[in-house]
Amino acid sequence: MALNTPQITPTKKITVRAIGEELPRGDYQRCPQCDMLFSLPEINSHQSAYCPRCQAKIRDGRDWSLTRLAAMAFTMLLLMPFAWGEPLLHIWLLGIRIDANVMQGIWQMTKQGDAITGSMVFFCVIGAPLILVTSIAYLWFGNRLGMNLRPVLLMLERLKEWVMLDIYLVGIGVASIKVQDYAHIQAGVGLFSFVALVILTTVTLSHLNVEELWERFYPQRPATRRDEKLRVCLGCHFTGYPDQRGRCPRCHIPLRLRRRHSLQKCWAALLASIVLLLPANLLPISIIYLNGGRQEDTILSGIMSLASSNIAVAGIVFIASILVPFTKVIVMFTLLLSIHFKCQQGLRTRILLLRMVTWIGRWSMLDLFVISLTMSLINRDQILAFTMGPAAFYFGAAVILTILAVEWLDSRLLWDAHESGNARFDD
């Protein structure tokens, strides 16, 4: 018995066209964080690309023209004298008006014999932002004059995390709450300039795509075929072959399989920071003279006294001054041990922890910024005066060393310790 099946006739004509040209192939790229070699397709503007294995951002879609970056830099340069030299806060102490600005706080630190601690604050609040705007201006002028731009481009990517104007702005709020127990506070004209400078700096850093600047100024022929001998440069993120001198053909720094002496430098910085954190938390970090009496505060006791007036601000200072430094030390110690013992479990967790400490590390400088600003506000000789204690130097040095330890660690070593050939990683 035959089955009668109805015929289905399409209502619209289906047209099949042959592909007349070869589909576009992607360029081969190595991930600078996990060293995976993959094919990167062509990316349009405002599109980002991520590593298929570790999800690290390979290409950032946010990109401004150099002219727009230069305009932002010149605007920031105009704001800087007002943000640093004009009063941020006014207080009335014992019937006398006192003005506080950024430069005055750094000068008070240096004047009291601790120039190293003052230079830490100076670099993060004044030096690094000033280098940022002058570097962008150098790129703008240098591109037109045919100057060598490689050193500036190499420095810009590392400079971003040292620009800490946003953290200093939080420190202004913390210092205001600490001082309000002794005097009446009012915002100064410099505060508005400083807030504007923070906003412009944040926007500029978020749109400063150094890798795209490398592509514009020093374009290189990408690798179009897969080759395990391809290496990625950690300076400019170019994937290719080393030249005859073993250097990256684009930025001219040595092109090595792994960062040289990464573990040794990381261990040295980490152990030194552990040693410095002990006096930083045991010795007094601030000293207040009130009517001839002397009151010393460690980091913890200062947080407890701050909690009596504002528990939320005390929580912020606790996280930045105690929780973050010790968390960074514990995480980095764990990561280094996992590399030495070739741990194969929990790779995803370790990668996330490394990215976390990379982002939060700079916030530990908050305590030094609060001390710097408070020193310029309260300084009335023996009637009422505020000065920093010996722990300030140890704390600042420990924070900087932990930042350097994270920067010096080559994250690809975590993958080397893991089993080879993993296309995915999980716990």
Rank of each mutant, 00 (worst) to 15 (best):
C31K: 00
H261M: 11
G26N: 04
T358G: 12
R158K: 12
L89E: 07
V174Y: 00
A196T: 15
R225M: 13
D410Q: 00
L278H: 11
G85H: 05
L413F: 11
G95K: 09
S48W: 15
D227F: 11
G315L: 13
N209F: 11
A280H: 02
K265P: 04
M356E: 08
L270W: 10
R424N: 15
L153R: 01
T201L: 10
Y168N: 11
F393D: 04
Q29C: 08
E86V: 06
T110F: 01
P87L: 06
P129T: 07
Q55G: 10
L354T: 12
F341D: 06
K111L: 03
V317I: 15
L271V: 14
R62F: 06
L300V: 09
I285C: 03
L191F: 12
L94S: 01
L335F: 06
G190D: 02
S176A: 09
S119N: 02
E211D: 14
T204R: 01
G246W: 11
S135L: 02
L257Y: 14
P151I: 03
R259T: 11
L213P: 08
R17N: 07
V329I: 10
T134D: 04
I96L: 04
G293C: 08
L153Y: 04
L89R: 03
L277D: 09
A187K: 14
G26R: 08
P81A: 05
R245Y: 11
S206C: 15
R30P: 04
S262M: 14
Q186S: 09
R30G: 12
S45T: 06
Q180V: 15
T327P: 00
A137Y: 15
V232I: 11
W359F: 09
T349A: 11
R362T: 03
I371S: 00
T402C: 04
I330N: 08
G346E: 11
I299A: 11
R62Q: 05
A137P: 05
A196W: 14
P325N: 03
I400M: 08
L354G: 14
P325K: 01
E407K: 13
F341L: 12
W162E: 01
M155N: 15
M388Q: 10
P129S: 06
L156M: 09
C248W: 00
C266N: 07
A307W: 15
D114P: 02
C251Q: 00
A49N: 04
T224F: 13
I98Q: 02
D243S: 10
Q108F: 14
T117L: 02
P222K: 14
C34N: 00
P222M: 15
S119T: 10
D410K: 00
L205Y: 15
A405N: 03
A268E: 03
S45K: 10
R350H: 10
P242A: 14
V170C: 15
Q108K: 14
I58R: 07
H418P: 13
I14L: 10
W140Q: 11
L40M: 08
R25Q: 08
L276W: 11
I287R: 10
I383M: 07
A385Y: 01
P325L: 01
L234V: 11
R59G: 07
K229C: 12
S338N: 14
R245N: 07
T374C: 12
A100K: 02
L353N: 09
I96T: 03
G95M: 06
V210C: 14
P32I: 09
L354N: 10
L153W: 03
T374A: 08
P87E: 05
P249E: 10
K57T: 05
E157G: 12
D99Q: 09
N422Q: 06
I131H: 01
K111V: 02
A18C: 07
L132W: 14
P87R: 06
A272L: 03
G146H: 07
S301T: 11
I378P: 00
C236D: 08
V133H: 03
L366T: 08
R59I: 04
